[in-house]
């Protein structure tokens, strides 16, 4: 086991090369709904046994999640439509088979699909390289077949990783990972071959963290989203920043929560200098304009 992931060098958030976004935007703003399928009776992973807290069937927890697909996602989608915000869907790709109507609705809106594994109930712990490669390839095939899109991004199912994950993503041609929370800017990830970047996703701005870990109220969530934006917008005057709102439709799509989220979207999109975008677009822009300069600057610093 390693004491340091070995995926990136220390790179303090001062004196960095300036990041620019299209049209001089200060903040690249993206919204990443996790559209997930939890199995009622998943097989047990040998390393991490806890999917459901209660014996199967855990009716309350299972149906709470299922609410997101039956009801929540549609309400969330409507709120995003109002402010012309496209989603970058963190997708359990089995959902293509279970609920194709959701995939069609997102695709019709021009949303991006990236992979969040097959099911959120199948963890990568103890997978061999070959097995982990297989879920990446399955994701590429499934998303291509159902949406025509080439898979660009990855958020590990239930945020479970192996030491090989990042190397495999790069080998399979993916562009970005959402699993690293060390920074507020995209950064190169050290991989064995090819290139990969970390894209700022967020735990702190994630509805599940605010609602289920911090036990926040909807109005508190709205205020937190605004405060996050205010700071990143201010810093964005110096160098481009990224703000992501990760969502879970079973939480944000509840009637008592969705308007607070909509108010935050209204606030953010009412500012000039906000690039309302997707994960793939940020990654493409970064590779085209910043990757080489940042990689060189980090290498120069490490050698100094």
């Amino acid at each position: 086991m390693k004491s340091d992931p070995g995926l990136y060098d220390y790179w303090p958030y001062v004196d960095r090369p300036t990041l620019t976004w299209p049209n001089g935007a200060r903040v690249a703003f993206w919204v990443a709904p996790n559209i997930e399928f939890y199995e009622l009776a998943p097989p047990v992973n040998p390393v991490w046994k806890g999917v459901w807290a209660r014996p199967v069937p855990d009716v309350q927890a299972y149906s709470h999640r299922d609410y997101g697909n039956r009801a929540g996602v549609w309400r969330m989608m409507e709120a995003m439509d109002r402010y012309a915000v496209r989603g970058s869907v963190s997708l359990n790709v089995a959902l293509c088979d279970h609920h194709p109507e959701i995939i069609e609705a997102c695709a019709a809106r021009g949303w991006e699909f990236f992979s969040h594994g097959i099911y959120n109930t199948r963890f990568t712990y103890d997978m061999s390289r070959e097995q982990e490669r297989e879920i990446i390839e399955d994701s590429k095939r499934s998303i291509k077949e159902h949406t025509g899109q080439d898979l660009a991004g990855w958020l590990a199912p239930a945020l479970t990783n192996t030491e090989h994950t990042m190397d495999l993503l790069a080998e399979c041609g993916l562009k970005y990972t959402c699993d690293l929370f060390h920074d507020d800017q995209p950064l190169p990830v050290k991989v064995r071959s090819g290139r990969l970047i970390s894209l700022p996703y967020s735990l702190e701005m994630n509805d599940i963290i605010v609602y289920s870990y911090y036990f926040g109220t909807p109005r508190h969530y709205r205020d937190v989203l605004r405060a996050q934006f205010d700071q990143l917008y201010a810093e964005g005057a110096r160098s481009g920043t990224v703000m992501c709102i990760p969502l879970h439709p079973f939480l944000v799509g509840q009637p008592h929560r969705v308007e607070a989220f909509a108010e935050a979207l209204e606030y953010i999109t009412s500012h000039d200098g906000v690039w309302v975008t997707t994960g793939r677009e940020i990654a493409d822009w970064y590779y085209a304009h910043h990757y080489d300069a940042v990689a060189a600057a980090i290498a120069a610093r490490a050698g100094a």
Binding site: Y10, Y125, L180, F181, D184
Partner: peptide
């Protein structure tokens, strides 16, 4: 808190030394 390799919490804490401390 999570099984190895817990990138989730490792990187969330490392954030403080890379970014948060300068704020």
């Amino acid at each position: 808190e999570r099984p190895y390799p817990d990138y989730r919490y490792y990187t969330s804490r490392d954030y403080g030394n890379r970014v948060g401390v300068f704020r």
